[in-house]
């Protein structure tokens, strides 16, 4: 291709500017278009409408005895529902929160002291801690113990020892009655 056909070499200065402006406009227009096309193809990976709609779970608390715990599924995750004994509640309340890695009072983590509701996912890297069954190891603080990398949680679900950075999360829940809750 000989050089004299090349568009860059020709034209008076004002034509040059107008052409550059045209090229830039077209390029910018194309880029905006490409960007807007990309979005639906990314957003499709977000939860679909039916997934979002299924985001509450109701739990009947009546069969749970003091000291017992059950695990229910909420949004595909385990939720720990534990009916604490008075001793466990006392243990949780007596802790000096200034010594905690993620300082939080027990009151801030429960609606009714008897019922501790937690998302059962270790805040380290996502394993499910042990301690729901009475036969489980509950760690040095009587709450939960995550076997993956050794995180210990207390009877309020707060991180006390091990690599996890945060307390076990408390999901949004409401008491529908004394004996039932809705999570989510």
């Amino acid at each position: 291709m000989s050089a004299d056909n090349s568009p860059q070499q020709h034209g008076p200065a004002d034509g040059e500017t107008r052409r550059d402006f045209l090229f830039l406009t077209a390029a910018a227009f194309g880029a905006v278009g490409a960007g807007s096309v990309a979005w639906p193809f990314i957003d499709q990976m977000n939860p679909a409408a039916d997934t979002l709609a299924m985001s509450t779970t109701e739990v009947d608390l009546s069969p749970i005895e003091p000291g017992q715990a059950i695990t229910v599924m909420w949004q595909g995750k385990p939720v720990f529902v534990r009916r604490r004994t008075p001793e466990e509640i006392k243990m949780a309340e007596d802790v000096d929160i200034t010594t905690l890695r993620d300082p939080q009072t027990d009151e801030a983590r429960v609606q009714k002291p008897e019922w501790l509701i937690l998302v059962g996912i270790c805040t380290h890297l996502g394993c499910v801690p042990q301690g729901q069954k009475s036969t489980d190891v509950r760690g040095e603080f009587g709450g939960w113990f995550c076997p993956c990398h050794g995180s210990h949680y207390d009877t309020s679900g707060r991180i006390r020892k091990g690599p996890a950075p945060k307390n076990l999360a408390v999901p949004k829940y409401t008491f529908l009655s004394d004996k039932s809750i809705r999570i989510g």
Binding site: P40, F41, D43, Q44, N46, A48, A49, D50, T51
Partner: peptide
């Protein structure tokens, strides 16, 4: 049908 109704932009894709 779930793609058409529930998945984000599913109908378009």
């Amino acid at each position: 049908e779930r793609i058409m109704r529930d998945v984000n932009h599913g109908w378009m894709i």
